[in-house]
């Protein structure tokens, strides 16, 4: 009906243009158009947080944002947080704490945790648990994830 729209964004620091239909969510665009499949689809209705990305400095669930709404936006996905082959301290902490099993929720948890630590470098366990309330894990449970974020916070403060 309305064809495709040309959208200009910056994804993981790189200028990225794409064409999308208005009905395509940012999640669909990232995975199916741009080819960044690190962002996962869980519930597709905002409940599970698996598709969490950072949009203009704030975490959002990409399934509830339209691709066309991303015009001019800066987006960070899981592909954009390691640097030069070195894992981000949060990624490293998730590995060391075995804070994942199937891994579908992991990119969302890591991006939500990054947004927390960028704002609050030394959160309490309670603050971490409350902040991650919109990210669901159905296999590992949350203790290892929370410990990983606490470890990452400590590591990042040493640097």
């Amino acid at each position: 009906m309305s064809g495709k729209t040309h959208v200009q964004t910056t994804i993981n620091g790189e200028h990225t243009d794409f064409l999308c239909e208005p009905r395509q969510s940012l999640l669909e665009v990232l995975r199916d158009v741009v080819g960044l499949t690190g962002t996962k689809e869980g519930c597709n209705d905002g409940n599970c947080g698996a598709c969490t990305v950072i949009l203009d400095g704030r975490i959002v669930t990409a399934c509830l944002v339209l691709g066309v709404e991303a015009e001019g936006a800066e987006i960070t996905t899981i592909e954009g947080i390691a640097s030069g082959g070195i894992l981000h301290p949060i990624q490293q902490a998730f590995l060391e704490n075995a804070a994942l099993q199937c891994g579908v929720c992991t990119p969302g948890f890591i991006l939500a945790s990054k947004a927390l630590l960028d704002e609050n470098p030394n959160p309490t366990e309670h603050e971490i648990r409350f902040w991650l309330a919109n990210n669901l894990c159905r296999c590992t449970g949350y203790d290892k994830i929370v410990r990983a974020v606490l470890d990452a916070a400590a590591t990042m403060q040493e640097v």
Binding site: G46, R58, I59, V60, A112, A133, N134
Partner: peptide
């Protein structure tokens, strides 16, 4: 509301 993702948008 209990969700940073929801209140951000």
């Amino acid at each position: 509301i209990g969700s940073a993702q929801m209140i951000n948008v």
